[in-house]
Design a protein around this nucleic acid. Sequence first.
DNA 1: ACTGCGATGTCCT
DNA 2: GGACATCGCAGTT
Length: 204
Amino acid sequence: MAEILKPLPQSFYLNPVLTVAENLLGKLLVIETGKNQIVVKIVETEAYHENGDPSCHAHKGQTKRNAVMFGPPGHLYVYFTYGMHYCMNVVAEKEGTAAAVLIRAAEVIEGIDIVKKNRGERHKLKDLTNGPAKLCEALSITTEQNGISLLENKTFITKGQMIAKDNILQTTRIGISEGKELPWRFYIKDNEFVSKKVKIIGER
DNA sequence: ACTGCGATGTCCT
DNA sequence: GGACATCGCAGTT
């Protein structure tokens, strides 16, 4: 590899979850897999918080499944859903407060061969990682990784491209039935790896 | 382009 | 027993 990549400090994740969600855009997620590594650029995120957010898994308090969300920031919260899919989140805010950012989509920077192998060769490039469960499959993330630290050198997030405010769009979240009105989804404008194009009312 | 729907297992009430 | 922070495929316009 060309350069040394360093994990973001825990202080990055200690911020309010909406701040973390927005600031994660453009950052690089690095997965070391044996002698290879996969690097992806985060292009779409959603924030979830135990307070005021009925769609958050921790909305009704701590359970076995959501326990990691209550733990220290900078760890991975992975859950299984729809009988066949995994979704990955980054735990934010202080220990004892349940808050996390769902990584919904990313763009592969390095390790495309491994990603194609994980996802299946039939897919088009942009369909490899343009959704939360697709991303987990691309990176081989399962509940085995639930709770791991992002502050060490195996799986971590590092500084990437700075995204100008003008190139960040904020909308309501996708695939939930409660808390629909909260504009807690962030994505990079015009990025082709974003999971869903949204019709913005009033735009031509 | 969009719409509907089946697959499938775990957690929580 | 119901819900589920989804995906891929088939059918339609």
